[in-house]
């Protein structure tokens, strides 16, 4: 009886460890290609923003910590996102910026001060 209890305990522990190891960080949702839907900024010319968004601009964030974008503009950089998926830094051409992040399976929103970029996931 004691042996069975011990085996059961080991099995349960293993199951918990397995389940934990398989759990994805919330931040992993960012590994996708995202279509820019909107950019809100008091500084930016809204007509020009609309022009770019209509032309299409897609950002891809890879598991390796790099991102690139293509469409109306091309470029690339590196990024770091915290495990909770709530804050991110990007570095491009040697300059680093920090953003607040709101991330779901289908939507990504980056905020810096009063500026907001909104994306939807490309499926």
């Amino acid at each position: 009886m004691k042996k069975i209890t011990k085996l059961g305990f080991l099995a349960l522990t293993g199951l918990i460890l397995f389940a934990t190891s398989c759990k994805k960080d919330p931040s992993a949702k960012i590994h996708n290609t995202w279509k820019l839907e909107n950019f809100e900024s008091a500084e930016a010319d809204s007509v020009a923003v609309a022009e770019i968004i209509n032309a299409g601009l897609n950002y891809t964030f890879t598991k390796k910590g790099t991102y690139n974008y293509s469409g109306a503009k091309t470029g690339s950089g590196t990024y770091e996102i915290n495990e909770a998926g709530t804050s991110m830094t990007t570095t491009e051409d040697g300059k680093t910026d920090m953003y607040q992040v709101m991330l779901t399976e289908n939507n990504l929103q980056l905020t810096r001060g009063k500026e907001i970029m909104k994306f939807t996931a490309n499926k």
Binding site: V47, T90, E92, K95
Partner: peptide, 23 residues
């Protein structure tokens, strides 16, 4: 520049292209 500033640079360039008065 970072992701936002890179985009804003593009906005400025586009603004100048589509609106010569801005330039």
């Amino acid at each position: 520049m970072g992701l936002f500033d890179s985009f804003k640079k593009k906005v400025k360039e586009t603004s100048e292209e589509i609106n010569p008065l801005h330039k």
